[in-house]
Amino acid sequence: MRTFSVICFGMMAEWAEGSHQELKLEEPATVRDVRKAAEQRWPRIQGITYRVAVNQRLAHDAEIVLQTDEIALMPPFAGG
């Protein structure tokens, strides 16, 4: 297992209790594995709508993530 850094935006940061988090993943890891690990660690985000960005680009679930990647969990914002 290796440690991956994850930035949480909006409500994700509240549910994860902090915007800068770490997740342990088996390599090779995909965006889907990031989602699974995040939802296991913070069950409150299960069923929540959010996107994953890797290196400031929106990523698909099958994409591989590296330890050096900047991973962000991004929910929509409601307010206006």
């Binding site: 909006g10 409500m11 069923g47 929540i48 709508t49 929910p75 929509p76 409601a78 307010g79």
Partner: peptide
């Protein structure tokens, strides 16, 4: 998102 997931 489902109603109530994201607060305003």
């Amino acid at each position: 998102p489902a109603q109530g997931q994201i607060p305003n």
